[in-house]
Write a protein that binds this DNA or RNA. Structure first.
Length: 134
RNA sequence: ACUACCAGCCGCGCCAUCGAUCCCAUGGCAACAUGGGGUAGGAAAGUCCGGACAGCGCAGGACGAUGCACCGGUUAAGCGCCGGGUCCCGUUUCGGCGGGAACAGAGAGUGCCACAGAAAAUAACUGUCCCGAAGCGAAGUUCUGCUUCAGGAUGAGGGUGAAAACGUAGGGUAAGAGCCUACGAUGCCGUGCAGUAAUGUACGGGAUGGGUAAACCUUGCAUGCUGUAAUGCCACGUAAAUCUCCGGGUCCCGAUCAUUGAUCGGGGCGGUAAGCGGUCCGUUUACUACAACACGGUUGUACAGAGAAGGGUAGGCAGCAAGAUCACGGCAGUAAUGCCGGGGCCAGAUAAAUGAUGGUGUUGAAACAGAAUCCGGCUUAUGAGCUGGUAGUUAUU
RNA sequence: GCCAACUUAGCUCAGUUGGCAGAGCAUUUCAUUCGUAAUGAAAGGGUCGUCGGUUCGACUCCGAUAGUUGGCU
């Protein structure tokens, strides 16, 4: 069976309420140009949901903001499968928000590499929380 | 031919792999799967104008505020566009051509005009001239000149300034002055002609007291305010809670009880509160019920209205994409634009899709740049290529 | 999405009937001190965000444009 690299409606953070909760209670860390907010909770309806944001302060033009968001989503889409697998084993739900804080327009390989590092870090935190819970 | 600038046209094509969103069909209770199709611009931008649509509001009047200002056309509308006129600037082969104009009013009033200058709008100062008196010189009857003073006439001379009381020439006068004449300039009035009109032109009359209205202002015309996160509906939830303010006097008439009074109804005057779009006038509506008592009043409660602070939700549907629509053809019109015909359906999200990677045309990565209610304009940004114009350089004839 | 305000010396800000470009701090020089700081005196430093218009004349008035900041929902 070949794994499909999708990023549909159910895999994005859509609800204003959920986003508010994430910003209020979530845990944050920095991965050079990105700032990552995440929140682990009991499984509800979806295992992994993510959102992307770019500040108007760092990119004045809407075209540049769209470009950064698209590159970030693309890199996340191609690399999040291992994270999903870990979540399925743990039975938890994870909400992630990626905020781009850099000032320069990134190239795609750079985004790909950083997204990979973020995924690895999140997998490690999931394993730690499982160990703590057990 | 190249370079620069200006105006206009155009606004990355194909293939492979992996995705996003919307619609349709099939399967499925559903999540979803499969197949097919659509998916950013000429400026989507700035938010500078104008509308559609929605809410608040809607007896009427006055004031205020804001905007506009040659004429005609066009439009749903406009500070847009088209055509015409007037003025200004540039160029000219003097026929024109190109560009610009916030192009109502300075003879309604108020204010301001630094420095310089006699003076920045009253006409003063200086000056010129006339007459009279005094003095001086020449002279020794007279006459004439100069100085000072008093009275009168005058607005030409004063060289500064961005701007100086129509300009030039002649006449005229004691000296002068549009005081008069000729030519010219500006703008006003009347008449004729041309034009829908602005206006032009001819004749006649009378006139010439600066500039500034993108200073206040005057005249004319127009305009409510807020915005689709508007607004309407459904679901869930909270607080039908808390605090503050306010809720009626007098006169007349009628009826009933009854007899110095009470109750009910109607009307006049006044009061309070709220609404009438920003203010005022004026106007409309409301001013209720019960209880207790130290009863012509006070207090309390309920209820209605206004305000304060606070609590809850942040899910869904409509608005929301077929329209002042798009391209084509024909007709009317100088044009903007309008009408007719058959045809097309062309983004619709809600943390927000329209993409990523590789190859190729093509060297080297394409420029400016991303819908959020929708239209009509304006302004600004823009690579390569193409078209037209201007300037420069080089080569040739 | 909608609506306001601001831009003046290196920094923070003044600047109104339109005619002068200013203050404080900072910089430089001099004085004071054995030396430094403080203090005193003097000097330099400006296309008034940019472009165009009105006016004799514009930081000021008008229009366009660039940037910055704030507010409402």
């Amino acid at each position: 069976m070949t794994t499909r690299y999708t990023l549909g409606k159910r895999q994005k953070l859509k609800s204003r309420k959920q986003i508010g909760e994430l910003f209020a209670k979530g845990i944050a860390f920095n991965q050079s140009p990105y700032r990552v907010l995440y929140l682990l909770s009991a499984k509800h309806n979806a295992s992994l949901q993510c959102g992307v944001a770019v500040s108007k302060r760092s990119f004045k033009r809407a075209v540049d903001r769209n470009r950064v968001k698209r590159l970030t989503r693309e890199a996340w889409r191609l690399q999040k499968t291992s994270l999903e697998k870990a979540l399925d084993q743990s039975g938890l739900q994870l909400s992630v928000f990626l905020i781009y804080t850099g000032r320069e327009l990134p190239a795609y390989p750079f985004c790909f590499e950083k997204a990979g590092a973020i995924v690895q870090k999140l997998i490690r935190t999931i394993h730690e929380s499982i160990a703590k819970g057990a």
